[in-house]
Amino acid sequence: MWVRDQLDGLWDDEDFVCRYPRDGRPGLSPAQLATVCVLQFLLNLSDRQAAEAVRCRIDFKYALAMELDDPGFHHSVLADFRDRLSQDDRADQLLSLALDRMRRAGLVKERGRQRTDSTQVLAAARELTRLELVLEAVRAALEEAATRAPEILDELVDAEWAVRYGRPVRLPSQPSHPVVDGGYVSIALLDRSARDHQVQLIGPVKASGAWQRKEQTGFTRDDFTIDFDRRRVTCPNGQTSRKWIEVPAMAPYTAARFHPTQFNPCPDRPACTRGTSARTVNFLPRHLHELQALNRTDQQDRQWKQLYATRSGVEGTICELVNGHQARRSRYHGLRKTHVQHVLTGIAINIERLASRAPAHARSPRPPTAFQKYLDSRSLSWECWWRQGK
């Protein structure tokens, strides 16, 4: 009902003209079928349940702009419609149409905060900055010409120039840090990301120790002091290791081994090891070990915890997809149909979130510049070309 009240529907039948033959008997409204598919994934309904809801539920009929006595359609029609969506990126086009309708209605604001859960979200900052400088330089020249001598632009400016230079360019910049979960974080990845991409990964590094960490008792690896210069490790009771082992099969880890005679008389042996042999401590090379220790220290800082709290938005989205819409399991066989399910689920979640909050208030637009006034006088559009993937 919110879709009908706020948007007057997400799609029109004219949006689907190219996907159906021009001849033959008129069929069902494709815009209505697309809306039913979205409502189906919003409410986790099967094809039979969705078709029955269209036939019996008043809120479905209202959302679809159907008469109360409309008998609906057979449930097999939905499977045929999804097959059409799985061809030629039609599902992605459906999502783009829905987002464009929401944006025109003022429900989706531009330049808002976006959350993503990708392994690498990196921008080519140097190339984008150069492109931005070139575009802004040309636009500055056009602004000056539109102010002093607009007649010289009549033979130069066309529709393509209007779209490209009509408004300021703000391209994405290189991120300084993407916030990741603990299952993704590794010390090697933290080091490589900072060294190769100048991006700091923010995420919890697991504590050392196996049963010590699980039982919250005993001596973990962090309780041992590692002296890389003298190539020895000192335990909490002051005993130093006898062997420093760097085996290629264990790379990049190094092992420091204590002698059994050092542990047999030790009163804290049960808190250190449960085996019959002496304790062996495995650790990373110096630069990775120091990075690991620094990260674990930062995790206890209040400022680090506040920064990592932004991860909750991503985790909430994942939880909503997994628990609320069963996104980890596909109803269908094949990647194309699974992709259609993901797209329809995404549209359903957008509707669910937007419907739960008050509509965004429209912001007052900035006054047009001299060049923009020139373009308006020639009926040339200057909408944002870089946000349309062109």
Rank of each mutant, 00 (worst) to 15 (best):
Leu128Lys: 05
Ala63Asp: 02
Val36Phe: 02
Leu43Cys: 09
Phe81His: 04
Leu85Ser: 02
Leu39Asp: 01
Val36Thr: 14
Ala123Thr: 14
Leu7Gln: 09
Ala63Cys: 13
Leu78Ser: 02
Arg4Trp: 06
Gln6Asp: 05
Leu42Ile: 04
Leu45Trp: 12
Arg113His: 10
Gln87Glu: 15
Leu94Ile: 08
Glu110Ile: 10
Asp23Thr: 15
Gln87Cys: 06
Ala141Thr: 09
Ser29Lys: 12
Ala91Asn: 04
Leu95Cys: 05
Ala137Thr: 12
Thr129Pro: 01
Lys61Met: 02
Arg90Asn: 14
Asp89Phe: 03
Val121Gly: 03
Asp23Phe: 09
Asp83His: 13
Arg57Lys: 13
Leu64Pro: 00
Gln49Thr: 07
Ala34Lys: 05
Arg82His: 02
Leu131Ile: 15
Val108Tyr: 05
Leu131Phe: 10
Arg84Gln: 10
Ala105Met: 06
Pro21Ser: 12
Glu136Tyr: 02
Val38Cys: 07
Leu142Asp: 01
Met102Ala: 03
Arg19Val: 06
Ala50Val: 07
Glu136Asp: 13
Asp59Ala: 00
Ala146Gln: 02
Arg139Met: 08
Gln32Ile: 06
Phe73His: 04
Ala141Arg: 15
Lys109Gly: 10
Gln120Tyr: 08
Arg103Ser: 11
Ala98Glu: 03
Gln40Met: 15
Arg22Ala: 13
Gln93Asn: 07
Leu68Val: 01
Val38Ala: 06
Glu143Thr: 05
Ala34Thr: 06
Leu95Arg: 08
Tyr62Ile: 02
Asp47Leu: 05
Ser86His: 04
Asp12Thr: 13
Asp69Gly: 01
Trp11Ile: 05
Ala137His: 13
Arg82Val: 02
Glu143Trp: 02
Ala146Thr: 04
Val3Leu: 14
Leu94Trp: 03
Ser96Leu: 11
Glu127Trp: 07
Glu136Gly: 03
Ile58Pro: 00
Ala79Gly: 12
Arg48Ile: 12
Ala137Lys: 12
Leu45Val: 08
Arg115Ile: 06
Leu94Asn: 01
Leu85Gln: 03
